[in-house]
Amino acid sequence: MQFREEHELHKRRWSRNLGLGLVLAAFVALVFGMTVVKVSNTDFSNAPGATPQQTGTK
C-alpha cells in the first residue's frame, strides 16, 4: 500500500540516480577492462626485480 502519491519530483530524482548509478558501474567496468588489457599486453620481463624464473627466460 502506498502512503503517499509519488510526486513528479521523485520520478526525476529517480531517473537521475539511476543514470548516475549506471554511469558509475560503466566506469568501473571500463577501468577494469583497461587494466586487464594493459597488464596482459605489457612485457614485464625487464621490470625492476624481475627474475629469470618469473619471465620464463634463462
Binding site: L9, R12, R13, S15, R16, G19, L20
Partner: peptide
C-alpha cells in the same frame, strides 16, 4: 529539478 537527460 533536473533529470538525468538534462545533464546529458
Amino acid at each position: 529539478e533536473a533529470g538525468f537527460g538534462d545533464f546529458v
